[in-house]
Design a protein around this nucleic acid. Structure first.
Lengths: 252, 252
DNA sequence: CACTATCGTTCCGCCACGTGGAACATTGTT
DNA sequence: AACAATGTTCCACGTGGCGGAACGATAGTG
């Protein structure tokens, strides 16, 4: 049942979501042929699915180019999920305050499989903009927030192993070094990383209810803007913020 | 074809989205029976759809209560739509700056049918919190942002009429007064409203490319915090912000 | 403690609807 | 003008969705 012969048929619903996922992942609207190619489906099948989605209002078709794209109705659907999310709700005030006192970009991430997921972000008023987007995923071991969470995850080793093998030669993961680093993170209470070149990130876990981290808050800044004293101040604010939030979340 | 006999069958996909919409609209997780009741579907049908959605990862079931709720995966799906949205992207910096200089909560709204849709919001660091949520809809004529947009919409009268009939006796809409008010909005360049009790809102349209408003930016504050000079300052900042943004959007 | 009511899950025969191939229509290219 | 590539429509086939009903689980009540 669960093991399908080869690729018999997969049902409308999974295919419908595959179409939506393809459309939303693409920065610009997609043509029908691009979708069929990417999904490995029949032209007519994709066309029929798209027609249904247009009827429901989740997809629109550019009248001139004929390209398809997801509509804001799809965004509305998901938006309610996050506004109800307890951690995101609890974090809002803390993020804002931390952004204010540090003057840098702060983010809220949670773990999602072997990745971290950016739940919220408050960007710095200063010139530099980061490219991390709310709703995007990044392999956990690459980011400060991910390390902060993994340091308190029982399956951290497995995550490191999977991530190391998952990424080809490009930026090899040094599992041994990371393992040692996670130990350090546990001791000092915060993690550091430089996922994007020229940007340093500091993060601390939200330790609420139980030994695992519910989330992490990170502060990111251009490397040249952070000297030793700035670093210490950021870390101080970060740790006290996370402690306060953990306390509040813990007694919800 | 388009006119269905009575309620023959509707197909899996529309029903699947109906389930998701019901789940996301509900503040708390829903039981199966609540869903069947709300959707008017068969128990087994809803159950089958939910099982499919769980398999796809868009729905989760609480192990203890058995209640169903949408997952963050659904949020991820929609999140990409908005990060690519040109107006939201263009507005981000302007919203942040306007929030900073006014110190109050600023929002970005666009029109969606007869409603306005909250695309983005930057909340005031001051004590009061508003209940408007990103991704939520409000009938356009009730809000400052909606009025700012309607003032430049060719079908404003139709929207007023529909909204007036749509809302029962509760807060009756005075169509004549609103029509006059829209004229005022066109003249002064900004709109006012008090959709939530004790909160005043000011809004101005983003007039980019053509005679219609692409969006509106609004500033909301507790009524008692806004005196006459504060009001004038807010409006001044608001108008200059919208003008700058319109110029930038116009030449994209 | 048995009885009943309610909710969630599973099963199954029927047939509607999704499926993929191909034909048709449309637009752009050399 | 002939061609190529893409988008849309059509149709016979059979898979998978459909709803009713039976089953199981849990809880509330006399």
């Amino acid at each position: 049942m669960t093991a399908e012969p080869a690729s018999p048929t997969e049902g409308v619903v999974p295919r419908t979501f595959a179409v939506l996922e393809a459309l939303t992942r693409s920065p610009e609207p997609m043509r029908l042929s691009a979708l069929t190619l990417r999904l490995g489906l029949q032209k007519s099948t994709v066309h029929r699915i798209l027609a249904g989605l247009i009827g429901l209002g989740y997809v629109q078709q550019n009248a001139e180019t004929g390209c398809y794209s997801a509509t804001l109705k799809l965004w509305e659907l998901g938006a309610n999920v996050i506004t109800e999310h307890p951690i995101k709700r609890a974090a809002s005030g803390f993020l804002q305050e931390l952004q204010r006192v540090t003057g840098e970009t702060v983010s809220l991430v949670i773990r999602a499989g072997d990745d971290v997921l950016y739940l919220d972000k408050m960007i710095s008023p200063r010139p530099i903009r980061f490219t991390t987007r709310i709703g995007s995923r990044v392999p956990a071991p690459l980011t400060a927030g991910g390390k902060a969470i993994l340091a308190h995850a029982p399956d951290a080793q497995a995550v490191l192993a999977r991530t190391a093998t998952g990424m080809g030669g490009k930026r090899r993961l040094d599992v041994a070094a990371l393992t040692a680093e996670l130990q350090q993170v546990r001791e000092r209470g915060y993690a550091m990383a430089s996922y994007q070149p020229g940007v340093v990130g500091f993060a601390a876990p939200i330790m609420a209810r139980g030994p695992e981290a519910a989330a992490a808050i990170s502060v990111s800044a251009p490397a040249e803007r952070v000297d030793e004293t700035g670093r210490q101040q950021i870390i101080e604010h970060l740790l006290s913020t996370c402690a306060s939030m953990a306390e509040q979340v813990g007694r919800l």
